[in-house]
Design a protein around this nucleic acid. Structure first.
Lengths: 260, 260
DNA sequence: TTAATAGTGTCTCTTAGACACTATTAT
DNA sequence: ATAATAGTGTCTAAGAGACACTATTAA
């Protein structure tokens, strides 16, 4: 076996790159679009930038890829750093796209591999990042908007995906692209279920679909369709909430679990 | 404005990376799965590795990302280097996935952004890379299998995607993933048309679909379906070939052109 | 009794897929 | 004539979507 420096030279030589190819090479980060259902809406976790460039604007959480870390491991580390879930293994994580425009970051050439993470409502950590109260929404806000995030980089907050704040870098476009991907995968995969607790009502499932599709669905047709697929099975449980009939709880049938 | 070194330190500091973060960073390449219809099959262009590791095995063409080059520009440069098309702008190019396992290349940490390219039959350059004659196929081979590629890296050859040779690195998996993506996009996009000349017969279009789906389709149902979408329009031309009725040629209707 | 959500069937229209023969050309 | 591919229509079954009322609970 050769030592590391020799290997680097091998790779560089093969591609006609200069001997110190690493210095010429772009930096690589992993950004993670973190999504969850909150207040019956789909919301994304965004940090507030504290430095130039785009100081004060919101950004998608991210970090550099470690030397011996896979891209997905790096994405889970970003999630763990933000401390928004109790167990990072509970999170559905999927690679979205890699953005590499030479001028997307004014500081350096940075290529970012973007993942999106779907957080089940029941998996959110107790110490929730702060919520933003949108104008016209009079429900309780649930936290001070100034609470600092443990990370050096920024404080975090949840924003409804259909009412995003001004964004740093190319992150507005990345969010938009994420929503399009989510919408595309909704019909032919079970990503919709990844935003729900292990047991859920059909109304909750319908809310997830409506949030991603940005339109309301007919209740009878929706239930007919999801039940006809056979991937759901009823539990013996119901959930009471408010002054109305309790809802039956469903779960994935074991056979269909974790299919993608 | 700051100078480049200062900017690099900014990025590194923000992510808690060591000061010489660039030395710790992975290398980034772009690999391009080049596909075309040849002999009524879908075929991929592969190079033969000339060095350790995986010497003698086949690999997907690729190259390092230049400092001021977008990822897509890098992919088109890989295409241009291989000299397989007359005009690189004619090629349909789409990002597939980014592979970054820390040990996928034994020489160094290499993250590769993979694109796939669909080459129209009429856009292939005259100096075609050599074709492989699979066992049992008695049609003419069309070139010496030993002709050297202009590139330092390897000689190139076309291989049917359903009969691939032993592959270097994780490239067999990448090819497989490409075919799955292609299959998935076939139903709801017009990628199928990107493998055809501007004017084509319905039988040629059906052959593309059958190659990607790996199954035969009913001729009447296929024609009914594609014509009902309204994205095709008849030309006044026909094509005669062999001892049978000439086929009508179609093209995209201008409105639907270049939709993705 | 009221407010709030859970839960349930029918009809229509469109689409997917099975299925077999005639048309036109070169040899 | 024969070989080879182009081109064409009907029927059936399944799925998507429009549409309105009853059931159960807490206050």
């Amino acid at each position: 076996m050769k030592d590391d420096d020799a290997r680097h030279r091998d790779v560089a030589a093969e591609a006609h790159a200069p001997a110190d190819a690493t210095a010429e090479h772009p930096l690589v980060t992993v950004d993670v679009v973190i999504l969850t259902m909150r207040r019956r809406r789909l919301e994304a976790l965004l940090i507030k930038r504290q430095r130039w460039p785009y100081e004060g604007l919101r950004a998608i959480p991210g970090g550099f890829v470690g030397r011996d870390e896979s891209l997905e491991d790096a994405a889970r580390r970003v999630l763990a750093d933000r401390a928004i879930v109790r167990d990072v293994r509970d999170v559905y994580l999927e690679q979205l796209y890699t953005f590499g425009d030479p001028h997307r970051d004014p500081r350096a050439r940075v290529i970012t591999v973007v993942y999106y993470a779907l957080i089940r409502a029941d998996a959110l950590a107790d110490a929730l990042p702060v919520a933003q109260t949108p104008p016209g929404d009079t429900s309780d806000s649930g936290g001070s908007p100034d609470r600092a995030d443990p990370s050096d980089a920024a404080e975090s907050a949840w924003f409804p995906v259909d009412a995003l704040p001004p964004m740093a870098f190319d992150h507005a476009g990345i969010l938009l692209y994420t929503m399009q991907r989510l919408l595309g995968k909704l019909e032919y995969t079970d990503i919709g279920y990844q935003l729900l607790a292990p047991e859920f009502t059909l109304s909750e499932l319908q809310e997830v679909y409506e949030a991603i599709l940005s339109r309301s669905l007919d209740k009878r047709n929706f239930r007919k369709k999801v039940l006809s697929t056979g991937i759901l099975e009823p539990t013996a449980h119901t959930r009471k909430s408010g002054q109305h009939r309790p809802a039956a709880l469903y779960r994935f049938s074991p056979r269909a679990e974790r299919g993608a």
